[in-house]
Amino acid sequence: MQAKWINRLLLMPATVWLLVMLVLPLIFVIVFSFGERAPAGGYIPAFSFEQYANLPARFTAFKNTLTLAPLGTLAALLIAYPLAYYLAVKANPKWKTLLLVMVIVPFWTSILIRTYAWIYILGGRGIPHLLEFIGIDGVRLINTPFAVLVGIIYGYLPLMVFPIYVSLEKLDKRLLEASADLGSPPLRTFRQVTLPLSIPGVATGCMLVFILLMGEFLIPALLGGGKVFFIGNALVDLFLQSRNWAYGSAVAATLVIIMLVTVTLYMKLVARVGEQREDVSIL
């Protein structure tokens, strides 16, 4: 009896927090999404599906987000994995901590400032200027989807590196020796042992990066020159510029639904792998 009471008490702050900060706003978003924009902006109650019918007007935002988010996740994975592998398996233990700190250090600076730095690196006085020295002229990098991708990879890399690093770090190195001992060359050992055992880290990293990317708006705005439009940008504009709360809510609700579906499918996939394996369990 008493234990039950204590459990409730322990869960109280989190429950209240979730209710106030997640459930309640979500209800507002859903209610608003059926309403209409007030003449001077804002919201007036109504019950119409007009806002949802208008969704195709943001098709490009959905398309850009749903292309660049998975692409960015995949690219971050491809860069993060070898780095995490090096840190966890190959790096000299003496330098390991220092190297890990170097991965985190950029996080001490605001993402805004770091992304601004990329404006200069990718801008005309940056990489394109260096390329001119070796005879490659007319390269434009800034304000392109490529620049957005670079920014995304840069910004989210540590989020991908750390879960993978942790899963590789706790990997028993004797398993690799066992595999070699049983006749498997290093590359096959990687494929048969290291990679499958780091799947939990990969799954967590991809999930983190993908979910955050779906709501990204800063990097496309700064490195895409306002021309590469994400759902996040559409939402910022709808709420802060056109002040069309009803339409904004419909876009937000749609984004939430897409995320729920994607994440559910993803978890099902991971769970299917996990059924056969005790070591794969995320969430």
Partner: peptide, 16 residues
């Protein structure tokens, strides 16, 4: 400033 059509027009332009 408050015209919803102009706001939508800019959004369409940006997201095109």
């Amino acid at each position: 400033l408050t015209d919803p059509n102009r706001a939508e027009l800019l959004a369409r332009f940006k997201s095109a």
